[in-house]
Design a protein around this nucleic acid. Sequence first.
DNA 1: CTGTATGCAAAAGCTTTGCAAACGT
DNA 2: ACGTTTGCAAAGCTTTTGCATACAG
Lengths: 152, 152
Amino acid sequence: MKLDTDLETFRRELRRLKVRLTPQKEMVWRFFAASGRGYTLPEACQALKESSIGQATVYRTIKTLHDLGFLRYTHDPDGEHRYLTSQPGHVHLLVCRGCGQAREVTDCDLSTLEKLLTAQTGFQVEGHHLEFFGLCAGCSVQPAPGMARTGL
Amino acid sequence: MKLDTDLETFRRELRRLKVRLTPQKEMVWRFFAASGRGYTLPEACQALKESSIGQATVYRTIKTLHDLGFLRYTHDPDGEHRYLTSQPGHVHLLVCRGCGQAREVTDCDLSTLEKLLTAQTGFQVEGHHLEFFGLCAGCSVQPAPGMARTGL
DNA sequence: CTGTATGCAAAAGCTTTGCAAACGT
DNA sequence: ACGTTTGCAAAGCTTTTGCATACAG
């Protein structure tokens, strides 16, 4: 399974970055890695309490992993941040409004658009955030009751 | 000045939408319209307290104006939401990391990219959020001390 | 007039912090 | 061993809610 190799990568990276590898960090990472949809901070706190991880640790760990690039967040329809594990580097998310699953997209060439903007406005574009939303292949087949809109 | 005609538009739109036009709504809207950079909810609460607008009203009004499309939010470097007035319709923001000013961009053709994504992933793309960041013309001339990074 | 919007104050919810004990390196 | 990380509990914020009063239409 891919998670295992990802987990190895996670450990290796932490070592390389001289960040302490604790069971908590690993559990938090695995928790997010197992979800395609991501979790908000309060959701993660509540769920990880089951694993006896204190909420302060959840907040601190998510911040750390986010800063290191192991987690990203996407935006709910409500504008809430939902964290999920991510490939390193520049990616964009394709978020399904049906099931909430997110998938990563590496294909993006906005360089033409960025050059145009610079020419038009004098703005030195350094980067962008781009997020797509719509319906994934599964959900667009039919608004299958019980499949789409799985609460949480 | 453009603000006046925008204010008229604002009033007209509220009437058209059968939304009550109260002094508070107007003050909140004007407060945001006067800022290029936007405000977070707590910032707005604090500032509008001066105008004797209760915080519950600030929250409720911002939510209403946001739902109606009169306000959008952009993302801080810290990921915080900063609300600002916006043109109706589909626009993108160009946010300066120097002075924090945001400007709207209507130019965006991601349709080719969206078709490509649909072909590759089966995902029915319904829309996107796109935000650019960099340095505006003023700030990129020089990191002028006292000009860039105006706190708040 | 009628019903919605407001302000206040309290409640609820979210996030951060201080500190002693536990743990990774 | 040392210094970082953790859990707990408390403190500090932010956001929502209930309700009487004010006000827009």
